[in-house]
Design a protein around this nucleic acid. Structure first.
Lengths: 215, 215
DNA sequence: CGCAGAGTTGACCGGCTTCAATTAGAGTGG
DNA sequence: CCACTCTAATTGAAGCCGGTCAACTCTGCG
């Protein structure tokens, strides 16, 4: 787990001053030149792109312990993406070249980071299946389940996601419209599979949820 | 470029005997236990998944110099994917734990590999945009362009992809049906933007292609 | 109280899929 | 070299899912 990553990286970043962002604030936008690597100490970050027509597609949500933008940490290309505080966050930033040197000297960090990247890669591949083949309800179900697994707390049978996710946030992850997500969320609630609240979503019975939704 | 990776990795893998596969042969399937890491010395590998209904989704095509399955090299989870020879290939395989040790001792290899993984990550994210927002013709255009950039030879103005890609192969990458791809490929040919042949695709004028297709 | 943002509902539309029938082309064996 | 086979590609018709648009409700909050 990336708890390791949090432990490993924290000492290096801790000497830099904490940066606090409020929910909804954009930390990096496409035009920004990437000179720093950010470390998430607290809170959640939404990583998304805006299509030319202004539609949002959320690729991933980052949790404490992760770094961004990893792409530029490794490749140094031009930025195309948005990084936004999904909740209040505390970050630390470190100049890119210092991070690169750090990674070169600490192969265990590079390895752990690679693991994390691969893990996210797999997550994106799984999502891609639903983008292309999935029905709307499968797509929504997969988003909820994936969020639960990655961000949620596992209460044995149930799974709670304590994030302020509105229908449109879910829509942006699922690649659907808000209206469609509304319909599917209502279905899931009526089937008694989830509880949906302002700041949390609960998958009541994970096995039942997966079985009923077919994911 | 991963020419570096090829150079870096070749010495380590060279002592293992070459494995030859014919076009169309499946090298790894979901049921297989992953005990080895494969290195592509020659040829191209298709990396895909089969949905429960039997539909194929091709995530990526790997070229010489790359390793697979990277996911299991780093994570060691259960395999879900297919790896198949898209052309005749020559591989070398190395036991997983030996590779892991190799990576731990050579941070430069881990770093280069991470770069490659991130590069593929970006490729997949770009594709995801077209899965969700794109029209069929944009989707197809993007597949061709991405293949050209990654696998093709750049002749200044034009871009040749020397792979045996049928319409259904392109459909599996684009996440569309073969019929739809047929229509879009015909459009592209009639517009004089591409030449399509049994073993090659040529994007005649890259700039014009991008401009006309809007990608 | 009024406003803004979030969610609901329903009608309509359109692009892609699905299904089916046909044609074209490549590879094989006699 | 020609029939045979199999897969790939083409074409067309029909249907459906989800998108779009618009009107409405609900909620929290200043």
């Amino acid at each position: 787990m990336d708890i390791d990553l949090l432990k490993k990286l924290h000492p290096f970043f801790h000497k830099y001053p904490p940066l606090v962002y409020k929910k909804g604030q954009v930390i990096l936008r496409p035009e920004d030149k990437i000179e720093n690597i950010y470390f998430i100490e607290k809170g959640y970050i939404k990583f998304y792109i805006l299509s030319p027509e202004g539609k949002e597609l959320t690729y991933l949500i980052y949790r404490p312990g992760y770094l961004f933008p990893v792409i530029y940490a490794f490749l140094g290309e031009k930025n195309k993406y948005y990084f936004e505080a999904l909740t209040p966050v505390v970050l630390r930033k470190i100049p890119r070249e210092i991070f690169t040197r750090l990674a070169a000297k600490n192969p265990d960090i590079t390895f752990l980071l690679s693991q994390e990247i691969v893990r996210r890669f797999v997550e994106l591949m799984d999502r891609a299946q639903f983008y292309t083949f999935g029905r709307a309800y499968e797509n929504v179900a997969d988003v909820l389940y994936t969020l639960g697994k990655n961000m949620g707390t596992d209460n044995g049978k149930s799974l709670s996601i304590n994030l302020p996710l509105g229908h449109k946030d879910i829509a942006a992850i699922a690649g659907l419209t808000r209206e469609t997500v509304s319909i599917e969320m209502k279905n899931l609630q009526e089937q008694g599979l989830i509880i949906y609240g302002r700041n949390h979503i609960v998958i009541k019975d994970t096995d039942k949820f997966r079985q009923k939704t077919g994911i």
